[in-house]
Amino acid sequence: MHAIDWLVIVAYLVWIVTDGLRRSHRTNEVAGYFLAGRSLPWWAVGLSVMATQLSAITLVGTTGQAYATGFRFIQFYLGLPLAMIILSLTVVPFFHRAGVYTAYEYLERRFDVRTRTLASLLFLLGRTFSLGVVLAAPSVVISSILGWSVPLTVIIIAVPMVLYTAFGGVQAVAWTDVKQIFVIVTGVCAAVVVLALGIPSEVSIGRTLDLVGATGRLRAIDFRFDLRETYTFWSGLIGGLFLMLSYFGCDQSQVQRYLTAKSVEEARHSLLLSAYVKIPLQLLILATGVLVFVFYVFQPPPMLFNRVHDREIASGPRAAEYDALQRRFDAAFAERKTAAEAGDRNAFLDHDRRVAAIRGEAVALVREATGDRQYADVNYVFPTFVTTHMPIGLTGLLIAAMFAAAMSAAAGELSALASATIIDFYRRHFVKSATDAHYVNVSKLATVGWGLFACVVAMSASNQGSLIEVVNRYGSFFYGSLLGVFMLGILTTTATAVGAFYGLVAGMAVVLVVAFTTSIAFLWHNLIGAVVVFAVGMAISRASRPHS
């Protein structure tokens, strides 16, 4: 990379920390530290909500996924707008008026301390490991393209992020999120322009669409009802609705965001911003991945996008095998390019399948050689494009955007972990009446502590692909159950504390069994968890209620 790109990255890191801290006020009070004194405008909260959800996994993984399969992943977000409408009508005014610091505080008011503690504990367990993955996944990719070690990359992402989160509280997180989302969107738009300019001028837009369409990448909506298929219209709309209701309604990393809004109305508008913008933004990111595919139809792509593995295998004991693959790959690419330029759809498809199959063989070779069974080369597609084809300065901007995505998602989770730890455990169970200064100081310690723990998880998760899979599965089974217990509290007046607690336990158990013994796609786990908790909770409440 050019010195100017490094300068852009360093300038971004310095700016994000200093400006985050400069904008923090009243952080010596608990309300200022965790809720920004309920002072933020709706647009800042809305952009912060979106930034927290847009992690580097989204930026790097989604573009890679679109490169390989096209627009199908958009179906994951189909439930989001409806979820935002439901939440802006229900829990947003509810939490705001209740004056709570965490979503789980409400569960004690409605049920008992046991239910609150269990729900908050589930959040802490899930989010701690998820924070590790949010740091690990981009670190593995960024370390590979910049030639750094994984631990060093984790530290470079984590240290500035922990600094502004610990000292600036949720205000620093929200205001840096606002800047980070602009850095991300500007970077992605720049990439789209460069990609579009990279397509030969003699190839018309119509022919380009025809070629991409032939590969199935433009088939975004799948109306088949198949529970085993991960992304369909139905899994996205129904399963996704429950996931988004749970994520935005019961997850402290999101609830804390809209509790910082000036008023109930501002909080509602902040969520509705996502309802309008999230799907178009996600389409932009997916379109970037599809455009990278088109770009590499006409420009020679590397057989493996992870250049480190490419060099290792090309000079290792299986070099001859790899070299033979490379020659077959070069020939298949040349024939695919010729077919694309001639507009020969059938020949293009045949050669595209050959290119994909040879890449598959190369990836299998990496998996055998490195022992990393989870290795996914698609995650390196976009970063490799950025470092090899973006103009000077824009490469730095895009790498900064990857840092921004990693930091914004991680900072939101870190601040939420600290608030749940201090409000739901430390202040509730251990030190019940201390000064604000005391609670803010231990909150800073908790933030640094969780940050360190996340770094350790990130450094170990990066070597164990299976751990990442376990974490993802875990996230999908606890979300639905949490939603179920909030539904019991908000939608009914007859649910009891005993019903809520054992309903939550039953929901978790059922989803655990479903997740590990059936092939039902994970989006449906959210619906199953919510329904089981609600049904079991109501049944136990009815049975345990004293007869009059």
Partner: peptide, 30 residues
């Protein structure tokens, strides 16, 4: 509480339009 019914309808219409456009686009070029 402010009545946001018109905003909700606009959001749902926008989503329906995006889904329809994506579906038609996919059918047109596959």
């Amino acid at each position: 509480m402010e009545d946001l019914s018109a905003t909700y309808v606009k959001i749902l219409l926008l989503e329906a339009a995006i889904i329809l456009a994506l579906w038609l686009f996919g059918r047109m070029y596959s």
